[in-house]
């Protein structure tokens, strides 16, 4: 069951992005940053939490989920450690993914070359 909800919710989030992409002259980078900030805001307002509970990976794998994780951790950090936690919380919680992207990105660049499109 959770597979179906993950597929549908994740797919729908992407459809919203696709429609914006097709109907404006925004680039994917604009959409990603906008969705991320929406995730941060929805996370802060407590709206994203139930979506993530319901759809699990369908809500956490798309980029708004990344924003949700950031804001949730910043609030938790602020709760437990005050100002220091507000600063460090978000990055602490998402450090794994960011570090992974850096190291995998670097290693991939070392061992492979870009190919021309055909």
């Amino acid at each position: 069951m959770e597979y179906l909800t993950a597929f549908i919710v994740g797919g729908l989030i992407c459809v919203v992005g696709q429609i914006i992409l097709d109907s404006t002259s925004l680039t994917p980078a604009h959409i990603i940053v906008t969705f991320l900030i929406i995730g941060v805001i929805l996370g802060a307002l407590g709206i994203y939490e139930p979506i993530a509970k319901f759809a699990e990976a369908g809500a956490t794998i798309p980029i708004p989920g990344f924003g949700y994780a950031l804001s949730k951790a910043a609030i938790e950090g602020a709760k437990s450690k005050g100002v220091l936690g507000a600063f460090a919380g978000g990055l602490e919680a998402t450090a794994g993914a960011i570090a992974a992207a850096v190291i995998f990105g670097y290693v991939t660049a070392l061992i492979s070359y870009p190919r021309s499109k055909s």
């Binding site: 992409l21 680039t27 994917p28 870009p114 190919r115 021309s116 499109k117």
Partner: peptide, 8 residues
């Protein structure tokens, strides 16, 4: 964009 970037 870079060649391997997945943009439409």
């Amino acid at each position: 964009f870079p060649l391997e970037y997945g943009a439409q």
